[in-house]
Design a protein around this nucleic acid. Sequence first.
DNA 1: ACCGGAGCGCTGACC
DNA 2: GCGCTCCGGT
Length: 748
Amino acid sequence: MGTFLETHGSELNERQLAAVSQTEGPVLVLAGAGSGKTRVLTYRIAHLIYDHYIPLDAILAMTFSNKAAREMHERVKHLLGDEGPARLPWISTFHSVCARILRLHGGRLGYTSDFAIYDDADQKSLMKDCMEKAGISDKEIAVDTILHQIGEWKNKGKFFDEVESLTRSSFEETCAKLYKTYTEEMKKVQAMDFDDLLLNTYRLFKEHPDVKNFYQDQWRYILIDEFQDTNELQYNLLREMMNSHRNICVVGDDDQSIYGWRGAKIENILEFDKEFKGAKVVKLEQNYRSTGNILKAATAIISKNQMRHEKTLWTNASDGQKIRLASLEDDREEAHFIVGEMKRLMEQGVSASEIAVLYRVNSLSRGFEEECLRYRIPYQIIGGFRFYERKEIKDILSYLKILLNPSDIMAFRRTINTPLRGIGATSVEKLEGLANISQNPIGVWISQWDAIPITGKARDGISQYRDIMAWGLSEVESRDSLVDLLIDLLKKTKYVEVLEKLGTEESKERVQNIEELLSAVQQFEENFREPDVTEGSLLRRKLRAFLEQVSLMSDIDGLYETAEKVTMMSLHAAKGLEFKVCFLAGMEEGLFPSARSYDSYEKTEEERRLCYVGMTRAKEKLYLTRAERRRVFGSINFCVASRFLKDVPMSAVETVREPAESSGSDYAWRPRIQKSAAQSQFANDFDFDQRVQSDEDFSFRKGERVVHPSFGEGIVQKAEFLGADECLSIAFARRGLKKVLSKFVTKL
DNA sequence: ACCGGAGCGCTGACC
DNA sequence: GCGCTCCGGT
């Protein structure tokens, strides 16, 4: 047997091989869409282990989603074969790695290993409390605005004690103050938010060099996937993790950077070779995924961006089918068209699992879902309403959370009156106040509740809750099985019983969801492997691992690739995936690109990258669809074709559907190729910015600032006649592009 | 003092 | 179209 590379090197192209074999020093792999970056990462890991005898613990690979981590895991395992080691290196998400480190060493920062992980909702709720205490109304300053500012600081690696001196306005001063109270409060309830996981690890390394040195010595080879989406804090954290060997391999594609809004710094990848002098840069430009036409179109879109590493994807594959453009009357027609095409493709033998519908905002999934239900097309929706975000699931998980971490105030609030026990807001507030005085974790305190000055209905409810808590807290220490605990918990709380008594369709579904949760727990338990945090009883360790997995689970982790189902998801969620057939729906101005991107060039570029990501998901067939009218918030909006449609080269597309003249949804749909694209409705929309009519015909000109009674301020994009009425397309600052009659707007 | 109904206002993408 | 807030009924 030769070395790993001798045996497997031929499975790599020249550039991939170069990236894999350069094991020492910094390496930047600029991997275009579909160019085999996961292949590079996995082969590199296998090469390190097999040919360089690098111990597993010395390798750290970080990805963005658990799904990507799992996939990488599987593939490395497969590459190493049966003779490979039983264990594998750390391949995990940034957040999971941090959580793991903090469970082990969080004590240095005043955290127990049972700390809770707060999601956005919990975070917001806790901040509201802090604001109330500080006497700041959320009507003065929105919670989101404050959290955004604090998030920005955290992202820069600034702890609350460092920002007080940096504040430059009264707003920032307020934020700094709230940052402090929020942090203290989070510590009190033993919780960390997503940013805290990163920031606290960073602080841990900064403030405790012994911990840092331990990990630095351990990790001699670091690999980062999706490097274009790392933020400043992740980048700095990475520098802390790295030892003097600087054996770091980052893989990414600046053209696929789509998380600027959560602080991703595209400069991290654009300037990597400057930051890491002597870095080897490898460009992967051969695409193995898509046909020529799809690549041609995607390349045309992305080449409009200024901020990028120049690279050109190419393929050996044929041009393949042309990209299909479909412009439909309204959103219902759009859904109808897409589902009709799906049906047709499936009849031709395309598997449902190879078809995806991608959209900019999750709210679009509803329409497609309804249409799929109507035509009995099996589907799965990724994101949006996640399983673990359902009320009944959150309720039950909260019981588990408070048993693990009795300080968890959010879990307390969720459970205290669930199911309804007649304990209202006033009583809850009183209880929280009393628990506060007692200095005990609220769950522990209430489990010992005795003679508390609360009377009436609430009193009975509280004693019921007390009994459940007292029982649960002792069970956690004494028994082993998580499923059993959960089943008994459901009995004790009468949660399912109450739902069943309701007997509605909705409650039946909830019971089903709970059953699904039970089987998920069971499955988790069967595969449970001891984590390196060995503190506490077995059940406690399981609980800790399970709740962490749930908290850090991403939308995409719920994707079942084996399922014979059509997949629907946001464009963001689609990153890293591929499908034989992709529908990009809702290609309309204001929706995609998002109206919120209009105010800056950078945001527009990010939208374009998102479009690029979406298009390059398709292997063989790509559809771009739009609706002329769309229901938003219940009212109808007139929509203009997305500028991205205009950027698609005519030679790579064909128009398959235009709005029928007759309206109504009962028309018989059949796919047909109509007029050439140049004559089509699309063409009219395409050049809307060049073909602004001569100014004198209209009372408003392009570029004029106007105000509309309900849409606010905007800028005229286009004027046209609708019969005798003058119709304006206006880009509203707050509402995006809309068509309105000129009599409703006034000049500014 | 709690619960359920009616009305208002708004929603981007995610670990 | 949906979730959160206010208000009147028990």
